[in-house]
Design a protein around this nucleic acid. Structure first.
Length: 127
DNA sequence: CCGGTGACTCTAT
DNA sequence: TATAGAGCCACCG
């Protein structure tokens, strides 16, 4: 639990100069930002796109740090492999994620995206 | 250096 | 079909 707070604080360090801008987090944020409106992707897909075979958790960690990022990170467009809004609890409000997705034309039922595969956006496909 | 944790995913029972 | 356990990488103290 405290890890998240610490992680957020650590984020403060990577923002200033002299740090590794190529940080894993930055990569994730950048990729997430490239997600087209009305589309969604999974942590595993992002992790794979970054070269992490099973680093889905790291992606989630990056999302945690994405809170308050200057370039808005549409973390709401990132869901688990099941299309469930697993991270909705980490947003400003648990319902914010769903609201944002619905605003983009995505139907959500039971915290799960309907026709997830249809809205799914492959990070590698953007290239 | 080592242990613990995490917005995940897969495999096994 | 559902539940349980292990694997995975990165970061912190």
């Amino acid at each position: 639990m405290k890890r998240q707070q610490k992680a957020k604080e650590s984020l403060q360090k990577i923002l200033p100069s002299g740090n590794k801008e190529n940080d894993f987090f930055q990569q994730v944020w950048e990729l997430v930002r490239q997600i087209p409106k009305g589309r969604v992707t999974s942590y595993g897909a992002i992790a794979a796109a970054l070269g992490l075979k099973s680093g889905a958790r790291m992606v989630g960690w990056a999302m945690n740090s994405s809170h308050g990022q200057k370039p808005v990170v549409p973390a709401h467009r990132v869901v688990n492999r099941n299309g469930q809004l697993s991270g909705k609890n980490h947003f400003a409000t648990p319902t914010l994620m769903q609201e944002l997705l619905e605003k983009e034309g995505i139907r959500i039922q039971d915290d799960t995206i309907i026709n997830f595969s249809q809205h799914f956006w492959d990070p590698q496909q953007e290239s």
